[in-house]
Each structure stands twice: as structure tokens, then as C-alpha cells.
């Protein structure tokens, strides 16, 4: 069967020798940017929802003086205030073992001696639907124990989440820019190709070819190129992604975004070669039609 569109010989077209690789590279970069945005989106959502119902009340070191009994009394007073506050679901004082466990990643296991003074931490669970007035609570706690601090994970996490959202937006903006650059590249390559095939195109035009006949040949070629390059780019991105997953899975870093993608995210990524094929095809078609419109 004769190949359609063979009237234009694109094989060995010098204008397009590097185009497949340029497009593959762009799809690769876009895939990484989109994957990054999707991973951050998942993490940001988790940070925002999972952690904001916890508070940590920290008592300064000087509240744990030599007189252990007095300190315990004051700690108990704070625990009482917390328990009595509306909107607080649970209050728990962290044991020294737990504090040591939390510090070990920074100081190293076995480096924390028994005589090292540690702050007292109280883990507070708030009711998500009826959060207490944190400022008022803080005033009351300070009265009972000056220097006490409330660490509001909710605020911190939402700031972290906001930062993640900003990076996510940046990644998406990057993707749009890559798509723009890809479009411009296809325009330039198509124009170069038009120049190479000028005589053939002029002949086709003179023997009665509609502009669409020529444009279709270019669009078909661009579609195949965009799809093939898109698959290569996505394949390379998948390898990179798996590599990152392998190298980061051993890290015990709770705040590091977990590199994993949902089925929906994978579907978005799988659509990228289709998007690159569509962009290439539409761009080539319009570039050719615009150029042909100059012929009489």
C-alpha cells in the first residue's frame, strides 16, 4: 500500500533532523515538571489535612528545675488548663523516652545522656470542627507558667502547604512555557521544511492542490513525530522518576514529599505524548496554511 502524503519527501529532511530529539527533550522536561507538581499537590493536601489537628505545648527548660515536684505541679496545672479548655480532645505529656527518640535523628543514637536537660512537651489534639482560641489559651498558659510556647502545627503546615502550592504553580507555569517553546520550535522547523519543499509545494499548488492537501501532509508528519518524541520523552521521565523513587525511599525524612503518583496522576502524565502530538500537528497545520495563503 502506498504511503499517504508521499508527494512530499520528508525523509532525510535536513530541517527536521534534530526536531524529534528537541521535542522528546521538551516532553521529558514537561513530564518531570508535571510529575513534580502532582507529587507536591498530593503532599500539600496531606500536610494541610493530616496535621492541623495537633498542637504542641512546650515548656522551657527552666520549668524543669532541681525541685522536680514543683515542676511537675506546674506541668499538671498546665495539663489541667488544657483539659478544661473547650475544643481540646486529648492532652498527653510526652515521656522522656519519646523526647530522646525525637532528638536522636539530630544528635545521634546514644549521644543523649540522662543528665541532658530536655524541655517538657505536651501533645494536644484539638477538635478540628471547634478549634479553641489559641491566643486566649496562650495568655492563660503564660499566666500559669511564664515562657510556655504553643507550637501550632496547623499554621506551620498550612504555610508549608502554601509553599508547596507555590512551587506547584511554578511547575505548571514551567510546563506551559515548555509547551510554548515546543510550539515555537515546531513553527520554525515547519517553516524551514516549507522552504526545503518549496518547489514541490508550488507544483502541487499549480496543479490544483487545495492548501489543506499540503497542510495535511505536514500535519500527519508532525503528529507522528510529536507522538513518537512524546513517548520517548515520557519514557525517559519514567526512568528518572523511578531512579528518584529508589534513591529517596531509604531516607527517613518525614517532611520530604513522598514520590508516588495516583492513577489519576499517571493518566495525566500518559496524556503528555498525546498533548505533544496534538500541539505539533495543530502548529504544523496552521504554519503551513498561513504560508500557503501567500501563494496566489
Amino acid at each position: 500500500m502506498r504511503e499517504r502524503g508521499a508527494e512530499l519527501a520528508f525523509d532525510g529532511d535536513p530541517a527536521n533532523r534534530y526536531l524529534p530529539w528537541i521535542v522528546a527533550l521538551m516532553v521529558y522536561l514537561a513530564s518531570l515538571a508535571v510529575a513534580g507538581a502532582l507529587v507536591l499537590g498530593t503532599s500539600a493536601a496531606r500536610w494541610q489535612s493530616g496535621q492541623s489537628d495537633r498542637l504542641t505545648v512546650q515548656l522551657p527548660l527552666h520549668l524543669a528545675p532541681q525541685d522536680g515536684v514543683a515542676a511537675d505541679t506546674r506541668i499538671q496545672a498546665i495539663m489541667d488548663i488544657l483539659s478544661e479548655t473547650a475544643g481540646i480532645a486529648a492532652v498527653r505529656r510526652l515521656e522522656r523516652d519519646e523526647l530522646v527518640f525525637l532528638l536522636e535523628p539530630w544528635l545521634g543514637a546514644g549521644n543523649i545522656t540522662d543528665d541532658l536537660p530536655l524541655p517538657e512537651l505536651i501533645d494536644v489534639t484539638v477538635e478540628r470542627d471547634a478549634r479553641p482560641d489559641l491566643d486566649a489559651l496562650k495568655q492563660r498558659l503564660i499566666k500559669a507558667a511564664p515562657g510556655v510556647e504553643i507550637d501550632d502545627h496547623g499554621r506551620w503546615m498550612s504555610r508549608l502547604s502554601a509553599a508547596a502550592r507555590a512551587v506547584q504553580a511554578l511547575a505548571l507555569a514551567l510546563t506551559v512555557m515548555i509547551a510554548g517553546a515546543a510550539t515555537a520550535t515546531v513553527v520554525v522547523a515547519t517553516r524551514a521544511s516549507l522552504a526545503v519543499h518549496r518547489e514541490t509545494i508550488e507544483l502541487l499548488h499549480l496543479i490544483g492542490a487545495q492548501d489543506g492537501f499540503v497542510a495535511r501532509a505536514f500535519a500527519r508528519r508532525a503528529l507522528a513525530l510529536g507522538l513518537r518524541s512524546g513517548l520517548i520523552g515520557l519514557g525517559l521521565a519514567a526512568l528518572t522518576f523511578i531512579f528518584l523513587q529508589q534513591t529517596t525511599s531509604g531516607l527517613d525524612a518525614p517532611l520530604m514529599p513522598r514520590i508516588e503518583l495516583s492513577i489519576a496522576s499517571l493518566a495525566v502524565l500518559a496524556a503528555l505524548p498525546l498533548a505533544s502530538a496534538a500541539i505539533a500537528m495543530v502548529t504544523a497545520r496552521f504554519t503551513v496554511l498561513k504560508a500557503l495563503a501567500k501563494l496566489p
Binding site: 502506498r2 508521499a6 508527494e7 496543479i207 490544483g208 492537501f213
Partner: peptide, 17 residues
């Protein structure tokens, strides 16, 4: 068109039609 054989050159107007 040198990249087409004699047959395809002559066939061109018919294919366009």
C-alpha cells in the same frame, strides 16, 4: 518530482483530485 517514480509523477493530478 525526483523523489516519486514516473508512475506517481503522472498520477499526481489524479491523487490531488
Amino acid at each position: 518530482l525526483d523523489h516519486l517514480n514516473a508512475f506517481d509523477n503522472v498520477a499526481l493530478p489524479l491523487r490531488i483530485a
